[in-house]
Design a protein around this nucleic acid. Structure first.
Lengths: 127, 127
DNA sequence: GATTGATCTGGAGTTGGCTCCAGGTGGGTT
DNA sequence: AACCCACCTGGAGCCAACTCCAGATCAATC
């Protein structure tokens, strides 16, 4: 199993080093292994978790919920809860997509309307 | 043309009264008409604008961009800029939808995997 | 005309989620 | 052994976007 320095973990996950420490303090991440000298040593598993956390975060899961997921992930017997949490999040993503679809249509409609107005105005000026 | 009190404008737009004042201070909204006594009186046009601003805001447009849109809306000759701004926003919405689609698949996959694990573990316990 | 509730103003405070800082240590290189 | 850069800790600071507050005013009602 490979190991990673804080800088590598940050580069690969897209979180900043400060954010990685913050997530650990907040209990989103487990206590990360340390080297003899006290530096953090991230494992493949940690990186995997980070990748998934980034997905959740990027799709709007709050720090509070992230912490809940992190805590559950440290207990083997919580898979049903994790499923529930993920399904809830999936539902919120679907809702969000629906909302975005609706607004996208409205924004495009409005842009079209403006384009029509512009043409109309140009026509008036030229006639 | 109907008119609306701050409370009505808030109720219909979904913004709080404080937010309406904030948006006006920030130049997102135009200076709203006042009654003899100095109270704000919102017009149908204002409410329409608020409805659209809410769509933009809810789909992640920043206050900064909202202000830009608001400012442009006060000048008749800026329709091309408004179109550009809306198209840019439409593009960002489309990008966001694509991202959400991707993550949604991944989250569902993970939930499925957990469900598989749960079944496996139950099976082991029962056998 | 007194009460009550909505609204006014300018400015301070809050929240979520980081981000930065000071002062100190680790450890590979010259 | 001296250098230097990455990293450590605890805690302060920051940013966007509101949200709340104090003290005053307006307007409809008793």
């Amino acid at each position: 199993m490979a190991t990673y320095s804080p800088a590598e973990a940050a580069a690969q996950s897209g979180f900043s080093i400060d954010t990685l420490r913050y997530y650990e303090r907040e209990g989103i991440l487990p206590r990360i292994e340390r080297s003899a000298g006290g530096r953090r040593v991230y494992s493949d598993g940690d990186l995997w978790m980070l990748g998934f956390l980034r997905c959740l975060r990027d799709t709007g899961m709050s720090i509070e919920q992230l912490r809940r997921y992190g805590e559950l992930s440290r207990d083997e017997n919580t898979m049903p809860e994790r499923v529930a949490l993920l399904e809830e999040h999936a539902a919120s993503i679907r809702g969000r997509i629906a909302e975005l679809d609706t607004v996208l249509a409205r924004v495009e409609e409005k842009a079209d309307w403006y384009r029509g107005e512009i043409r109309r105005t140009e026509g008036a000026a030229t006639s």
